Computed example of a mutant assay.
Amino acid sequence: MKVFRAGMALAGLMLAGCQQVPAQAAGGTIEAVNHTRWAINHFSVNGQSGIDIIGPHQGGGGGCCFRAPARWQPGMTVKIDWETGIGDTDEFPGYGNREAFLAWAKKVKEAKRRHSAVVPVPDYTGQKTCGITVHFLPCDKVKVITSCHIYSDPQYPVKEPLRMPEPAACAR
Rank of each mutant, 00 (worst) to 15 (best):
L102I: 11
V78T: 01
A16P: 07
Q58H: 15
A169T: 14
F101D: 04
K141V: 08
H35N: 06
V134Q: 01
D88G: 04
Q20E: 01
P138N: 12
E31Y: 02
V121A: 03
V118D: 04
C148A: 12
P120I: 06
Y151L: 14
E99Q: 15
A117F: 04
G62K: 08
S152M: 15
M76I: 10
G50P: 03
A9M: 13
G12L: 12
A32S: 03
Q73N: 10
Y151I: 15
A26G: 10
A70D: 12
M8S: 10
G87F: 09
E91R: 12
V45N: 01
C65Q: 04
T133Y: 03
E166Q: 14
D90P: 00
V158C: 09
G94L: 13
G85N: 01
A11Q: 07
A39H: 01
V45H: 04
I80L: 05
G47R: 06
I53Q: 10
A25M: 09
H135E: 15
Q24F: 09
W38Q: 01
A171L: 14
A39F: 02
P22G: 08
P165H: 05
N97S: 10
C18T: 05
F43N: 01
S116N: 03
R172A: 10
R114W: 05
G131D: 03
G61F: 01
G85T: 06
Q155G: 05
H57Q: 12
S44D: 03
C130Y: 00
C130E: 03
G87T: 11
A103N: 10
C148P: 07
A111R: 00
K159A: 06
A168T: 09
K106E: 07
P165M: 00
A11F: 13
W104I: 09
T89H: 10
W38K: 06
